[in-house]
Amino acid sequence: MVDRPDILCIGSVLWDMIGRSASTMRLGSDVPGRIIRIPGGVAMNIAMTLVRFGLRPALLTSLGRDRDGDALIAEAEDMGMETVFAYRSDDLPTDSYMAIEGANGLIAAIADAHSLERAGAKILRPLEDGRLGNAAAPWAGPVALDGNLTAELLREIAGSPLFAAADIRLAPASPSKALRLQALMGHPRTTFYVNLEEAGLLCNTVFDSSGAAARALVARGAARALVTDGGRETTEAAGDRVLGRRPPEVLVTRVTGAGDTFMAAHIAAELRGSAPEAALEAALDAAATYVSGDTPQ
């Protein structure tokens, strides 16, 4: 029998191939650097941070029955995650992600998450077959949900009795997929974690501050919104309450996964019972440590 996990991480689990250079880069740059392959994907990045904070997350995702999928399962289990609920496909390969980072930030990235999209609602079976709940007795704990899921599946989740009691935390995955999260706008138990650009896309405008963005998301129907803006102030808004904090100043050595680290650290702090101010500060500290390169990968 599998022990109940602390949180469900639903979405992309894949291999990250990341090239990093200390040089400033532009279109067509050919520079020296390092290339690494590490476990990644939004759901995986969030789960890895949750594990570092002493929590036991379960992964609900799609992985191929291939060597890459087997290796990811082994890595996740070694880190302390629950993988028994992951959907393993006989005909879909394990997904992957490739990014190039320079001294001036993320240069370009490609996410090949087509297997997750094609698997669709199959990844949610443990929530309806009794292993993690069912329609009559739905999962009542926290859920980290990522925007790599299709808009259609996110719409199903928004109205599904399987998520009626869940504490849903949303990550957009990337600005190009942020609009998929509109399906959960208005859901009473959902928290949006977005950056300034993603908030603008969801509100069909351009914001000059996280405060304006967070307030606009709440006005648009978000139960709660946390908006980051790089090294500038991050803002949390929920109802009439607005809370802003500036992140610590650090030397930025990496950016891929920073938003996922912020979200996971905030969830972990709240599950420990931290007050809103303390939870926000803990999340900003964790993200700053991550981008500085002090957190191991």
Rank of each mutant, 00 (worst) to 15 (best):
R245M: 12
D90G: 11
A151E: 14
I157S: 02
G200S: 07
M98Y: 01
P175L: 06
P248W: 10
P93C: 03
A113T: 09
R155G: 05
R245T: 03
L217K: 06
D68C: 09
G211L: 13
Y87P: 00
V252A: 12
V250F: 06
V291C: 13
I107F: 06
G102I: 00
M263A: 11
D68I: 05
E117V: 00
E156I: 02
I7H: 04
L280N: 04
N134D: 15
T235D: 07
V206H: 15
P5H: 09
G244V: 03
D70Y: 00
R246K: 13
V194G: 06
V255Q: 06
D91N: 13
G130T: 05
S274V: 01
L284V: 10
R232H: 13
R232G: 03
A219Q: 13
E198F: 00
R180E: 05
R169D: 09
A216C: 14
S23N: 09
T261I: 11
T289C: 02
L8V: 08
E249A: 15
S21G: 07
E77Q: 12
A111C: 12
A199S: 13
V194K: 12
T24C: 06
T253K: 14
K177E: 03
A103T: 04
I267W: 11
T49Y: 11
R215F: 09
D167Y: 00
S209R: 07
R34G: 02
A121M: 03
I35P: 10
G259L: 11
S23H: 11
I18M: 10
R34E: 05
T83C: 15
I157W: 06
I110V: 09
V194I: 12
A111K: 08
H114L: 00
D78S: 12
A43R: 14
L217F: 06
A86P: 07
Q182V: 04
E77W: 01
L116G: 02
P172R: 10
G147Q: 13
V13T: 09
S115K: 09
T253R: 15
F192I: 03
I46Q: 15
A238D: 07
D146M: 13
R88E: 08
L132H: 03
R246Q: 12
V42Y: 07
L60K: 04
D208V: 04
R232W: 08
A111E: 05
A166F: 10
L196P: 07
L124N: 02
I73R: 00
E152R: 08
R155W: 04
D90Q: 12
L154S: 01
L202P: 12
A216K: 11
S115D: 08
A268Y: 08
L201D: 05
